[in-house]
Nucleic acid binder design. Structure first.
Lengths: 250, 250
DNA sequence: ACAGTTCTGGTCATGTCGACCAGAACCCCC
DNA sequence: GGGGGTTCTGGTCGACATGACCAGAACTGT
């Protein structure tokens, strides 16, 4: 027969008759540093691609799910046991992507709200937070097909910021509207009017709920901003739409 | 060391030291039949899940990419060499999802504009176009974790219809606005005003470009509709936004 | 006290969207 | 050939959302 479904094999089949692959899980860890999107990369010690930077990852174990493997790799890499967000976004299995053997990798996107302390826990010489532009531009040598994986991750973030509650994953449990707005501005590379931004997220309650507390102003002073926590409406999608035409103030 | 990247192995490593998986590619094939979303399912002949319905798929070969494997499976199943759309949307690797061995499957979404003839080419007793509601409801027994895969595919379609040019993949090279509108109405389960729909897609050219020809009216008569072809703007996203609140005419 | 900064509420013009109407163009049936 | 039914197509109208902008409030550091 011309069609074959998984497991549609003769009764006396032998698993060795089917091509074997190694399956890995790679986790693209993104976070905001000084109002700019950064990615956590590790430096490879062994061949191939020794000395190059890579997205952290590791082999999937037969007794764990893909999500569990991603969570385990994230914990091993950052010390964080639960990220704000951990989403699978792609699979990569081109022949020759690993010169040693057939490897199919499942790529995950993790968003952390504060990766400072966790990174300090690993060997500082082997892990680094790299600005997205540097990682995607030619400045950094990336191992395997990790440049394509990283590019796909960034594209996914840019889109999910509009259609999911992804933005809240970048900020803490309580946040000011300026912090939340900075996420959109950094990821999309746009400038949003703070007053209009406030009007939009405050239109319905359930986007942001006031906590009553206020943040301490930054070094530049200014009126202390109100602290909010994320409401339930983010599960249905985000309130902020990506501007199509360039705004005035750019 | 606590961290390990793919291939970060000792020099004298042996591929057999790492867990081996079978990698398959499953293709969820969607199409419109009589204004309703349908999925192509095949009936399994062997154990496990003999007699159940399944999403067509097969083993990935070491010398082909995942996309090539998906295209090959689609061609073997439908006879179509190039679908209107073929997108990877998820990977599934829970332990025990296949009772015989460790299988990780990469799921693809294919959209066909006319699957009638191709399906006739395969054994009619083993392949069928099933309405989405029937396949997701309890009426059809689905093998493996294919119910979850199918549910994810439908969720993906519902979302991509808004943010990508997916809608044009369901219709032919030329189409009427009523045909295009029927895609949105079937996938989202809403009713869209035909006049407003026209205004939206005709706002900018580059959404639909008139061909000058007209369609033949259906059995109920009516004014023959103008035939359009898809413009380039669909690559940037779709013009129709999903209604949030229920419209009046529902 | 004062300048500088940020937050916060407000206005105003414009654009978009849903709802609706009416004529045009075709079918089928009598 | 005429009439009723159906669909297509262009238009209007009001409600609402959005972008741009302004001004006062509240805090910082000098």
């Amino acid at each position: 027969m011309s069609t074959r479904t998984p497991g549609d094999v003769p009764a006396g089949y032998d698993p060795a008759d089917y091509p074997a692959f190694a399956v890995t899980v790679d986790v693209v860890i993104l976070t905001m540093v000084d109002g700019a999107l950064h990615v956590l990369l590790v430096r490879r010690g062994q061949a191939p691609f020794a000395g190059d930077w890579a997205v952290p990852g590791g082999f999937k174990r037969p007794d764990e799910t893909l999500d569990e493997a991603a969570r385990r790799e994230l914990a091993e890499e950052t010390g964080v046991d639960a990220a704000s967000l951990l989403t699978q976004f792609g699979a990569y299995g081109d022949p020759g992507r690993d010169p040693r053997m057939n490897v199919v990798t499942i790529a995950y996107l993790a968003v952390l709200r504060d990766v400072g302390a966790p990174v300090a826990g690993t060997d500082a010489a082997e892990a680094a937070l790299v600005p997205i532009e540097d990682a995607l531009g030619g400045g950094v040598e990336l191992a395997f097909d990790h440049r394509a994986i990283l590019a796909d991750a960034v594209a996914r973030v840019r889109r999910d910021l509009e259609v999911t509650g992804l933005a809240t994953a970048f900020v803490g449990a309580t946040f000011t509207l300026a912090e939340l707005r900075a996420v959109y501005e950094a990821v999309w590379g746009v400038r949003l009017d703070s007053a209009n931004f406030r009007r939009r997220v405050a239109a319905d309650d359930d986007w942001v709920v006031p906590t009553g507390r206020r943040s301490r102003p930054g070094a530049a002073g200014g009126k202390p901003a109100e602290l909010f926590s994320a409401g339930r409406a983010w599960q249905e999608g985000g309130p902020i739409r990506r501007p199509r035409r360039a705004q005035r103030g750019m």
